[in-house]
Simulated scan of single mutants.
Amino acid sequence: MDKKQCVYAKKCGGCDYQGIDYKEQLAKKQAYMKKLLKPVCHVEPIIGMKDPFHYRHKVHAAFDCTKRGQIVAGVYKKNSHEVVDVESCMIEDEECDRIIRDIKDMLRSFKIKTYDEDTGYGLLRHVLIRKGYATGQIMVVLVLSSPILPSKNNFVKAIRKKHPDISTIVLNVNQKKTSMVLGDRNITLYGKGFIEDKLCGCTFRISPNSFYQVNPRQTELLYEKAVHEAHLTGNECVIDAYCGTGTIGIIASKNAKEVIGIELNRDAIRDAVTNAKRNNVKNISFYNEDAGKFMVEMAEKKESADVVIMDPPRTGSTEEFLSSVVKLSPKRVVYVSCGPESLLSDLKYLVRHGYKVKRCTPYDCFPYTAHIENCVLLERTN
């Protein structure tokens, strides 16, 4: 049974499937994927959640002040930069929501002004909270327009008094006029400046700027499926392309001979190296390079890989990258996708160039929204 209708549904616009029974949501997503991928493959039944509420373990609130002087914190109204004041959200972790509410209530007594996008005045822009699903560790990131937080020690003490479970508090400096939430500079105010979480038996470090899936319960099932579809026996060389902080590659390393993780983001690679050491994984190496170029060079040197696991952004992969997969010619490609339309386009390319789609399994990692993750297995036909 679904809970009652969200009170912010008409204002917020964050949940496309608000007011629709969860079983019906899954049926809609299943039908969409079947119709979309009909030209290339069969689609397995979608893997949904037993409890589709409060699954988001990364919660972001934009802060603003109304013309009447009321401080608001929440999400941007669809297609605008007007902040909808959200007290509690049906899909966000409840403890994270409580911390944001309390920070909002503390601002006046600490004389902290919210940032005004139009004038560039004010201090607090956003609050980002990440919570480890398995560990319960909590990171609070205060995104400010300046590196100076007045009465910072007292502010930190006040938040921790209300929420003693907070593991670390970080001040992130974003001085640019940009829609990007986080800036590049992080100053640790309390704790280690990062938290850890466990996924598929491995421990991962999460820094303020790290990419880490927002729904760990479903991510664990998705990643287990990806490694299962790779059919690893312990003798394979595996490439983890778009590897981020190394999550899938480190999980796969238990069953592979060698894993090569490739990622353009330097900060992510730094975290990936730390994560490998933290899990005592010796058979994985990371490269801060363009994955497509790296694989072309491997093919030119007559080097090979048995499996390529790829987890590109929502916009999908590039033709350069896909052609490099074809040149390297692994036996299997496991494609983890968060963008169904770009997935179809990429699968069509690989099918035209000697691969067959064996199976696609959708995962509902974002209940109440239209987003769908998929795990697809492709095998070389020749």
Results as ranks from 00 to 15, higher is better:
residue 153 N to E: 15
residue 309 I to Q: 04
residue 308 V to S: 00
residue 133 Y to G: 09
residue 111 K to V: 07
residue 338 C to R: 06
residue 276 A to K: 01
residue 250 I to L: 10
residue 317 S to H: 03
residue 26 L to Q: 07
residue 29 K to D: 04
residue 77 K to N: 12
residue 76 Y to T: 08
residue 221 L to K: 14
residue 174 N to Q: 09
residue 216 P to M: 06
residue 381 T to E: 14
residue 267 D to N: 12
residue 321 F to V: 12
residue 235 N to S: 15
residue 327 K to D: 12
residue 31 A to V: 08
residue 327 K to P: 07
residue 167 S to N: 11
residue 376 V to Y: 01
residue 131 K to E: 06
residue 366 F to L: 11
residue 245 T to C: 13
residue 274 T to Q: 12
residue 20 I to C: 01
residue 130 R to A: 15
residue 69 G to Y: 02
residue 287 Y to W: 08
residue 11 K to I: 06
residue 309 I to R: 01
residue 120 G to C: 10
residue 284 I to S: 04
residue 257 K to Q: 14
residue 289 E to P: 02
residue 111 K to T: 10
residue 320 E to I: 11
residue 88 S to K: 14
residue 209 N to A: 10
residue 74 G to Q: 04
residue 342 S to Y: 08
residue 5 Q to E: 13
residue 74 G to L: 04
residue 320 E to L: 12
residue 346 D to C: 07
residue 181 V to R: 02
residue 249 G to D: 02
residue 308 V to K: 00
residue 277 K to M: 11
residue 235 N to W: 05
residue 292 G to F: 06
residue 186 N to M: 08
residue 137 Q to C: 05
residue 89 C to F: 09
residue 41 C to G: 15
residue 25 Q to N: 00
residue 237 C to P: 04
residue 190 Y to T: 10
residue 361 T to N: 10
residue 95 E to T: 14
residue 290 D to R: 02
residue 100 I to H: 14
residue 221 L to M: 12
residue 202 C to A: 15
residue 176 K to W: 08
residue 212 Y to M: 07
residue 195 I to A: 13
residue 108 R to P: 05
residue 40 V to K: 03
residue 285 S to V: 14
residue 377 L to V: 11
residue 287 Y to P: 10
residue 13 G to L: 00
residue 54 H to S: 12
residue 326 V to T: 10
residue 336 V to C: 02
residue 190 Y to N: 12
residue 372 I to N: 11
residue 254 K to G: 07
residue 223 Y to G: 05
residue 217 R to G: 04
residue 361 T to G: 10
residue 28 K to C: 12
residue 337 S to H: 01
residue 278 R to H: 15
residue 108 R to H: 12
residue 365 C to V: 14
residue 245 T to Q: 14
residue 100 I to N: 14
residue 72 V to L: 08
residue 248 I to D: 06
residue 82 E to D: 15
residue 334 V to Y: 00
residue 338 C to A: 07
residue 242 Y to P: 06
residue 227 V to G: 03
